[in-house]
């Protein structure tokens, strides 16, 4: 008797739907409704007393790490951050409850987007068991109420394919561009400065930063500098100057994140990396950074 063992990708996913992706009405609808899902205000100024911007960055970094370790779908993290920001914009929250809130937001986003969602137990373990599954489930109800059950928020990811298909990109680079754009979107979600930006602008800026970073402008003049920005701005009806500013901001977030990572590496391994740190302290171009 012969035994056959086939490895199957455990995650079954639907094929991209051309009816959704190749129809401009979908893009226009996304652009019309995206503002509804933005947080109501810049909450560090007007709502929160106990929570400060650096704490949001801490919880966001942790959430991103959990999502990566659990190999969540790319949208889960930005969506969870959208829930977190919208909740914090209406509910003054204690610092010691912030991680619970982050876990609840991942729990909800994962349930909405994934075929096999994160479990409450797993998320509690990631908080080093500082919260209990029962508490997570209770707060899920509270968060849902405050979000008015509007969970299907528009995220930058919803725009990526719509933008990419309208650009004259080399087919073989498409995967890489998409991946870089997704990384930028995740980076933006960790940074509060982007929390009030419309998702379409973050998506457009991220695609722009990805293309510029990969220096794809060799043969294709429409992919270089200003003409790329204009092309991108037209696709999502974004103001050209806003888009430029957004793209620059994304680049600078990348630089500051890299510097942070290098500092951490240096702290844990002080003997080396001194040269690299010097180099990173005055970056002129991200491409010049040596790692």
């Amino acid at each position: 008797m012969e035994l056959l063992c086939c490895e199957v990708d455990p995650m079954r996913r639907a094929l991209p739907d051309p009816n959704l992706l190749y129809d401009d009405r979908v893009l226009h609808n996304l652009l019309t409704i995206e503002e509804r899902y933005l947080p109501q205000c810049s909450y560090f100024k007007c709502v929160q007393k106990d929570i400060q911007p650096f704490m949001r960055r801490m919880v966001a970094t942790w959430m991103l790490e959990v999502c990566e370790e659990q190999k969540c779908e790319e949208e889960v993290f930005p969506l969870a951050m959208n829930y977190l920001d919208r909740f914090l914009a209406v509910v003054p929250t204690r610092k010691c409850h912030l991680q619970l809130l982050g876990a609840v937001c991942m729990f909800l986003a994962s349930k909405l987007k994934e075929t096999i969602p994160l479990t409450a137990e797993k998320l509690c373990i990631y908080t080093d068991n500082s919260i209990k599954p029962q508490e997570l489930l209770e707060w899920e109800l509270v968060v849902l109420g405050k979000l008015k059950w509007n969970l299907a928020a528009v995220t930058p990811h919803d725009f990526i394919e719509h933008i990419l298909r309208k650009l004259p990109l080399p087919k073989d680079k498409l995967l890489l561009i998409r991946k870089h754009a997704q990384t930028f979107i995740a980076l933006c979600a960790t940074d509060f400065n982007f929390a009030m930006y419309p998702p379409s602008m973050i998506a457009t800026g991220s695609v722009g930063a990805a293309i510029c970073g990969l220096q794809l402008d060799d043969g294709e003049s429409s992919l270089s500098g200003d003409s790329l920005t204009e092309l991108l701005a037209k696709i999502t009806n974004t103001d050209v100057d806003c888009l430029k500013a957004c793209q620059e901001q994304i680049e600078s977030v990348l630089v500051s994140n890299l510097r942070q990572v290098q500092q951490q590496q240096q702290q844990s391994n002080p003997s080396k990396m001194v040269d690299e740190l010097d180099q990173a302290s005055t970056p002129t171009d991200v491409r010049d950074i040596n790692l």
């Binding site: 204690r94 610092k95 991680q99 373990i125 908080t127 080093d128 500082s130 919260i131």
Partner: peptide, 15 residues
Amino acid sequence: VRRNLFGPVDHEQLQ
């Protein structure tokens, strides 16, 4: 990745 970010949680307060 498994870590407690902001110290002990007051479960009574939370409830």
